[in-house]
């Protein structure tokens, strides 16, 4: 309901600025009458407070750059799901796998893959599920690719005599309210590659899909080096 109010004058402009927020040229501050403009300000502030969470929650992809590391992240909140992908440097992956007695075979197997840290959360009051086998990424040549799942990684490591099965995002999960997960997700791409990610999840009995365009693998070296 509130969502409709916030976007009522701009059909089809999901996530765009609501019409109630004062903008340059708006006459909000020129209302006449004792206390009239304060009342209007309060009114508009209340609207803003109501609408801001919906703006953040509108399904828009929010791309950010970490000011300390220069690395990029992409975050989407929509239909109960919050999902965030964070660039991970190859050196960091090596450090994670190299510092915990994990056999070198695990790290060797990941050469040639670009890795993202992923945080996936059920932000609704109902069950939510996802299945990574349904997700695809589209490279610049237009071809669509499956994502190598945790099950496939674990099987490969097992073949190399390693029983390790952690740190990757699980293939599929049933998330009750408040449940969330984080882990690595891998794409068979060289550093700095750009691609579109198509992901999906199930919520309130319906399949939902989302696309993040122009996701970029972490560079081979830290930005600025």
């Amino acid at each position: 309901m509130a969502s409709k109010a916030c976007h009522s004058t701009s059909p089809g402009s999901r996530g765009r600025k609501p019409s109630h927020i004062p903008v340059a040229g708006d006459n909000a501050f020129s209302a006449s009458g004792e206390g009239g403009y304060v009342r209007k300000l309060l009114n508009r502030t209340a609207w803003f407070l109501l609408c801001v969470p919906l703006l953040v929650n509108s399904g828009e992809v929010v791309r950010k750059k970490n000011p300390d590391t220069g690395l990029l992240s992409w975050k989407v909140k929509e239909s109960g799901l919050s999902i965030e992908f964070i660039q991970v440097l190859p050196d960091y992956v090596a450090a994670v796998y190299g510092s915990r007695d994990i056999p070198p075979a695990v790290l060797e197997s990941m050469a040639g893959y670009c890795v993202f840290g992923t945080i996936l959360k059920n932000e609704s009051a109902q069950e939510l599920t996802y299945r990574m086998a349904d997700w695809r990424y589209v490279t610049r040549d237009g071809s669509e690719h499956r994502i190598k799942t945790k099950t496939e990684w674990v099987a490969e490591w097992k073949g190399r005599g390693v029983s390790y099965r952690w740190s990757l995002l699980p293939d599929d999960q049933v998330f009750e309210p408040g449940d969330w997960s984080q882990g690595f997700i891998t794409f068979r791409l060289p550093p700095d590659s750009v691609f579109d990610l198509k992901f999906s999840w199930r919520y309130q009995g319906e399949e939902h899909t989302g696309t993040i365009r122009d996701m970029r693998c972490a560079p081979a070296r830290p930005p600025g080096e």
């Binding site: 959360k121 952690w166 995002l169 699980p170 293939d171 599929d172 999960q173 998330f175 009750e176 408040g178 449940d179 969330w180 997960s181 984080q182 882990g183």
Partner: peptide
């Protein structure tokens, strides 16, 4: 499937609650 995962067991040793994630 992922860490952390927490289970709460009743006195009979049945799993009655679950929490996935911190």
């Amino acid at each position: 499937k992922g860490l952390p995962t927490t289970y709460l067991l009743n006195r009979n040793g049945d799993i009655v609650y679950r929490a996935v994630g911190g």
